Amino acid sequence: MYDLLPSLSVIEASSFVASPTAGLYLAQMGAEVIRVDQIGGGPDFRRWPVTEAHDSLYWENLNRAKKSVALDLGRPEGRELLQQLVRATGQFVTNFPASGFLAHDRLAEGYADLVTVRVMGWADGSPALDYTVNNAVGYPMLTGPGPEPVNHVLPAWDLLTGAYAAFALLAAIERRRATGVGGEIRIPLSDVAIGTVANLGGIAEVLAAGGNRPRLGNAVYGLFGRDFTTRDGQRTMIVVVTPRQWANLVAALDLGADIAAVEAARSVSFATDDGMRFTHRDALYPLFERAIAARDHADLAAVLDAGGIVHSPYRTMFDAANDPAMVADNPIFGAAENPSGLVYPAAGAFATLPQQERRAPRPAPRNGQHSEEVLTERLSLSSGDIARLVDAGIVGVG
């Protein structure tokens, strides 16, 4: 946690990954993020992984450092309160539909400086998830050896979209500071995905080639990089990205003469050309397979580290969670009380500001924990007003 955005307050009405991620990143940098949910929790409130008591560890961690207001959004009075909160605060992040009671034009009537950032599935407003968008842009047909598609479990487009949404909100606020004008920014998951494909050269590549690149399994496209197995059975990934790393890798494995023989036979040089090493991987991989298979992993890792060569053994998430360098001794983690009651390391801001003290991570709220506080401060409702709303089931408190 850092105090970079102490004057920024944001209303968030969202679920699942992308939109809550935007709010999380803003909160970690010091913004007041007020999440508004249905009383009892929204559609992601019990999403797995869950505890034995069915508390969502997913929800608990994507909503750290936020405040919670619970309203009955199925009733006109609850929807009106959310609209009033958005207008009174001036900044809104959501993945609710672009039409309906949270349409920007409707919210901005009389509030031209309102900034809305809306995460969407497809640009036409139809729904999409990370896993379906990923299929649409073609990555599962590049992953694995083929011919079957291979999905991955990381919701990459959700996470990129959430980060982009946080950036877009700050950009819109900067524009408003200069012009006095707000507006809506729509960020479809599908556009983030296909735009990223384009930024990485993928669209230009396939159109210029008239087809897809070959599927490479665990090999890295365009570089010397692949998984290898050591003598003691440890599978490890090795990737070379600089001429010095290549020279050090060849020397560490005592492959100089073998590499020179391949270069002479094929009239090529691998010293400075990434693409050449990739193109002739059919001759290079067997040499490295044999050399690495003759070494135990600890010995190999020592010589690779000495040569500044990028490598990492494959391991499980449980292994990573128990690695002191990654978690226990990593300053991004700290202790926080959790609504689930579980005790585990909590992640704070990923960035490190050497000139500022890092604050401890904060817990996620209970559903409706801050309803009274927020409705009093933002809408100037009296305690009697709030009590009547609670009794009527329009406002929930936790």
Rank of each mutant, 00 (worst) to 15 (best):
D254G: 02
Q356T: 01
L255Y: 03
T316H: 09
D385N: 08
L284V: 05
I238Y: 01
F224N: 09
A291Y: 06
N134W: 05
V115G: 02
F333M: 08
A156G: 14
L223N: 04
L102N: 07
K66A: 05
V137D: 10
A336W: 07
T196H: 10
K66M: 12
D105W: 00
G40Q: 03
V69Y: 11
G341M: 12
I173V: 14
A349C: 15
G348T: 02
A293C: 06
P49I: 12
E109C: 04
L255G: 00
G225I: 11
L114N: 04
A136F: 11
A251L: 10
V69N: 10
P214S: 12
E372L: 07
P324G: 02
E12T: 02
S269W: 01
E77L: 09
L170P: 10
N134R: 09
T230E: 05
Y221K: 05
N199D: 14
G125H: 10
A294F: 07
L102A: 11
T161N: 11
P147N: 11
L342G: 01
F224S: 02
P145I: 07
A252I: 11
N322L: 08
R231D: 12
T116I: 01
P147R: 03
S7G: 07
L154F: 15
I309F: 04
R215D: 10
A335N: 10
D124E: 09
A364H: 04
S68D: 12
V50R: 07
V36L: 06
F350Y: 10
V343T: 14
S19Y: 05
M317N: 10
T132C: 03
A261P: 06
Q38F: 11
P97F: 10
R266N: 14
D319V: 06
Q245D: 03
T179D: 09
R378M: 09
L107W: 12
A209Y: 04
A88I: 08
G256Q: 13
Q245Y: 00
V93F: 08
S14A: 15
R64A: 04
S340M: 06
V390S: 03
G146L: 09
G396Y: 10
Q28Y: 06
E337Y: 02
D158S: 09
G162N: 12
G30M: 01
F228M: 01
A325F: 04
F101P: 15
R366K: 09
L249Y: 03
A360C: 00
M237Q: 11
S56E: 08
R176Y: 03
G40D: 04
R266C: 03
L62F: 15
V390H: 03
Y139G: 00
V241Y: 01
A251E: 15
A22P: 12
G125W: 11
G30W: 03
T279F: 05
D274M: 08
V220E: 10
A65T: 04
T143G: 04
P324R: 00
N63T: 14
G202P: 10
S126T: 15
W59G: 01
S383R: 14
S267R: 08
Y164G: 06
T179W: 04
G210C: 00
A88L: 04
S7M: 02
F350A: 13
N134Q: 15
A293N: 10
L381F: 01
Y285I: 14
L4C: 00
R35T: 12
A364C: 13
E60C: 06
G110L: 13
L381E: 05
